[in-house]
């Protein structure tokens, strides 16, 4: 059963050099309290799995929105992403060699994470055939099935997944608001330790079993308090 801990206790668990998946898209759905605390921790050398680098300015004027703080602080040595165009610091750090950037098509990326969490050995997809993606490190082969060419891509897993839910009950069951479920649903399955940040921590029973999106069995720790409104 998921255990409720403080943000500090959560960050204490994450060592230098850890691989970390962080849910969300362009900062929306990042677990902001956990990310802020990680940014202040002084730790680094992380391998980050996050769709993007969020944005230098958030939707309500926030400075270094979401994971952009980790990039700005140069805490990331390697990043697996699909699109980093809205955070120019990633291109700068990638060009200077401070950050190794691995780009993957978004549909393949999330499916590779799902494979990592679902015990599958690979993803087989038509996306990227005939492009430079074929030469990327995550592509482990090519195959023909019924006359169509596919790329074989390895699964992704990480030491930690940090995700955010709008309502999380004390058993760790998660209900997401809006588009924030995006990558978190897959990431919750593909890390050794999943820490979920609750916008609203609720009693068991307050999320109907039919409405649970991420089952609590995937969630090891819950921390309280994200963005409550908006």
């Amino acid at each position: 059963m998921a255990k409720i801990i403080s943000v500090e206790e959560a960050i204490d668990m994450i060592p230098d050099g850890a691989s970390i998946m962080i849910g969300g898209f362009m900062g929306c759905g990042n677990p902001h309290k956990l990310v802020d605390a990680l940014a202040k921790s002084g730790k680094g050398n992380f391998t980050l799995f996050c769709n993007d680098g969020a944005m230098p300015v958030g939707p309500c004027g926030e400075e270094y929105y979401g994971v952009a703080k980790l990039i700005h602080n140069k805490q990331i040595k390697k990043m697996y992403a699909t699109h980093v165009g809205l955070n120019p610091e990633i291109a700068e750090q990638s060009n200077s060699g401070e950050l190794e950037l691995i780009l993957t098509p978004q549909g393949s990326y999330v499916e590779m994470i799902r494979a990592g969490g679902a015990g599958l050995g690979a993803v087989i997809t038509p996306t990227g055939v005939g492009t430079i993606v074929e030469d990327y490190e995550h592509v482990i082969g090519r195959m023909e099935i019924e006359g169509k060419t596919y790329l074989i891509e390895r699964p992704y897993r990480a030491d930690f997944a940090l995700i955010a839910g709008y309502k999380i009950d004390k058993a760790g069951n998660i209900w997401y608001k809006g588009t924030t479920r995006c990558f978190s649903v897959a990431m919750a399955t593909a890390a050794d330790i999943v820490i979920a940040e609750a916008d609203n921590l609720v009693e068991i029973g307050e999320i109907e079993p039919e409405d649970v999106v991420t089952p609590g069995v995937y969630v090891k720790y819950i921390v309280e308090g994200g963005i409550e409104n908006g």
């Binding site: 993007d52 992403a81 699909t82 699109h83 980093v84 165009g85 291109a91 990638s94 950037l101 780009l103 098509p105 978004q106 549909g107 393949s108 038509p126 996306t127 990227g128 055939v129 492009t131 993606v133």
Partner: peptide, 14 residues
Amino acid sequence: KVPGMGGAMDLVVG
């Protein structure tokens, strides 16, 4: 410019 492909590769294939 290296912004990344995002979802474009999947979209045009699918």
